[in-house]
């Protein structure tokens, strides 16, 4: 049992940190510009594909630095020549713009790299078991992913709380008009934040690509869960996004490990398990099977009971 708990925790934290890399950028963009960026997960996919391509041409370690920068530049360009142009028509066109962009990126990826998953391998240097516990090994690459995401989290925290640019961003989160009045170039801040957020998503893609699967549907798989993280954590709240990411990562991983169903619960308190009738199947469904739905249930509940999210301060 202990080994299951330890490995589920490791896997859950890893998945959570990966979500956080994506969610941190998304939540900043969301709260600053008031726009849910539907294409955010597509930048994650772009990161994975850029990473794959660069590691084919040169090396994984080059890709680790270059690919996120490339994705960041694409993101900044999208903001500068796409979103900013659409911005004057209001939020709904912006939303539709990012929605369409997600499809365009997916189609382009399919055109360039094909519909099949690409063979994006773990670099040789990290292709060994990091440690062994209870006879189970844990791959070094996963430890590397974990370290990178923790490092990024710390850097992000320092930049946002200790630097001048962080102050401006934080101010722009809550009082965008006031910041503009003070003479700061808010559109430029927007562009930088958008580019930086996309770059973070790209970085997540570069490191997740070899461990998971690099394929055109990878944005689709992660997209919806990101919105859950952002809304659950609270708009614009980095610490909220952090907590929500870890929670969802752990819940999803631990749910898989739990085999109990409602029926088992009933039997354990001495009630009979319903075996007949239209809904009899419902009692047999285990937590493991409903695991994927749990985050969305959390989303619905938090919207009902605490619309600002865990750590959020404003609704919009």
């Amino acid at each position: 049992m202990l080994e299951l708990v330890i490995f589920s925790t490791l896997n859950g934290v890893l998945y959570g940190m990966l979500l956080f890399l994506l969610a941190s950028g998304l939540t900043l963009i969301f709260s600053m510009m008031g726009v849910l960026n539907f294409a955010h997960a597509s930048f994650y996919m772009l990161g994975a594909y850029f990473g794959f391509q660069i590691s084919q041409w040169l090396d994984f370690w080059v890709a680790l630095f270059v690919a996120p920068v490339c994705v960041g530049l694409v993101g900044a360009a999208v903001e500068r020549w796409g979103l900013r142009t659409v911005h004057k028509w209001g939020h709904v066109p912006e939303l539709l713009f990012t929605f369409g962009l997600a499809f365009v990126i997916e189609e382009m990826v399919q055109m360039i790299w094909g519909k099949l998953p690409v063979d994006y391998r773990v670099p040789k240097l990290l292709d060994f078991p990091a440690f062994e516990l209870f006879g189970t090994t844990y791959p070094a690459f996963r430890m590397f992913m974990l370290l990178i995401s923790v490092a990024i989290f710390l850097v992000l925290l320092l930049v946002l709380t200790r630097s001048r640019i962080g102050l401006i961003i934080q101010a722009a989160l809550t009082h965008p008009n006031m910041v503009a009045m003070l003479g700061h170039n808010v559109p430029k801040v927007f562009m930088m934040v958008f580019g930086f957020g996309s770059g973070l998503a790209g970085l997540a893609g570069v490191i997740a690509g070899p461990a998971l699967v690099t394929q055109p549907s990878m944005a689709h798989v992660l997209g919806p869960i990101l919105f859950v993280v952002v809304v659950f954590g609270g708009l614009g709240s980095l610490s909220g996004a952090f907590i929500a990411s870890l929670m969802i990562g752990l819940i999803q991983t631990f749910a898989i490990a739990i085999n109990y169903s409602i029926g088992d619960l009933l039997t354990s308190v001495g009630m009979a398990r319903p075996v007949q009738g239209m809904l009899s199947d419902l009692w047999q469904v285990t937590v493991a099977q409903v695991g994927p739905v749990v985050p969305y249930l959390m989303l619905v509940l938090i919207l009902i009971f605490r619309p600002t999210g865990l750590m959020g301060t404003r609704e919009s």
């Binding site: 299951l4 589920s8 493991a288």
Partner: peptide, 23 residues
Amino acid sequence: VGDELHPLAKITDFAPYIAKIKA
């Protein structure tokens, strides 16, 4: 000792399942 069903073609990381099989 285990009878698992998981979603079709949706899972990109089976590590949690492997941990469960091991346990």
